[in-house]
Design a protein around this nucleic acid. Structure first.
Lengths: 185, 185
DNA sequence: TCGTCCATGTAAGCGGTTACATGATTAT
DNA sequence: ATAATCATGTAACCGCTTACATGGACGA
């Protein structure tokens, strides 16, 4: 239970519309807390009803009217209450590792192909993270007390993607060696 | 949609009761696909109705009767179908990183305490993984084609926990340096 | 002309969590 | 005594996904 808090965190940094914070999510908090626009609209409606956020309706020309949300004092104190409470567990569900666990059901070559594909995907993610690091976090921003925590979470992503690549290389190397050892037998 | 496949994978390695595979989960597939016993019982009932697994009822003395499940040929071919299909995305929800993202709301010392607590937890997890590596995966098992994939997933856990510790140290060091720099001003 | 962007949502259904329930056995 | 282990589940609820819907503006 805490899309609510992820939304409060995002809205505290900057007010915005459901549409806009959906997109912001995908470039920040969304790296460790995914949510679809349907979920976000629904939760914002609920949070409005419960008094944690309010919105002002802004009419536009040539575009649909939008609702600009911001956090209420009640929302702010709810966030602080949540910050002080012990963290609940991380939830991870990785279908790729489930498949790998059962990979002796399929030919080794197929698993190698899948691994290389996955490796390529993680390389792209890492590149994206490094672009963000370069473009949004120059030295003086990294140490700014307003942004340093966002920077830490980015570093978390970078370090994990690097770990992922190291692991993939380890596995690929082992599988390739095994395959050629079998070939020599 | 794939607790189903995680269960098929687990049951293929060895038949077992709902209770027993709930526990096995927590030491293997559960590292990358969590599930509660309620969820597992429910899914096994559904899978029985759909013909992917069957069970035989075993009466016991001094203990409640148990249902020993195993995979049917239909379950086996469903697993193979799933293996060939492209993997869906990993889902990650980490409340700790959400909190860290908003950490400028709380005093730096509090965040440092939380980080150190989290670091200790990850150290314990890493120790557990290394124990498993030592006790369940001696050299000849690591290369055995029946077990090597389970070993790869364990290596994934180890490498990620090591990455987590490196990251935590990086963050803690930065925060401590910042705090002492402020102290000198 | 076709797709994408902006901006909002509804509805059905599945997946997952939390709480509750039972009852004998064995270890502390 | 008390708690944990074995072994099964039900029920209520919440969170999340998938599919569907609208409609004008703007660029390829």
């Amino acid at each position: 239970m805490s899309l609510r808090h992820a939304l409060l965190v995002t809205l505290l940094q900057n007010e915005g519309t459901g549409y806009e914070i959906t997109k912001r999510f995908d470039g920040s908090v969304g790296f460790f807390w995914q949510a679809s626009h349907q979920q976000i609209y629904k939760e914002l409606a609920k949070m409005t009803a419960e008094g944690y956020v309010t919105f002002i309706r802004v009419e536009q020309e040539g575009k649909p009217a939008k609702k600009v949300y911001r956090v209420t004092p009640q929302g702010h104190s709810e966030l602080e209450r949540w910050m002080a409470e012990p963290v609940s567990n991380v939830s991870l569900r990785d279908p790729f590792l489930v498949k790998l666990y059962a990979a002796d059901l399929v030919p080794t070559v197929d698993m190698l192909t899948a691994l290389r594909g996955h490796r390529a995907m993680h390389t792209r993610i890492l590149d994206t993270y490094r672009d963000i690091e370069r473009n949004h976090f120059p030295a003086h921003v990294r140490t700014d007390s307003k942004f340093r925590y966002a920077y830490f979470t980015l570093r978390n992503g970078i370090i994990h993607e690097e770990a992922w690549l190291r692991w993939a290389d380890e596995v690929i190397t082992t599988l390739v060696e095994d395959a050629s050892a079998v070939g020599r037998e």
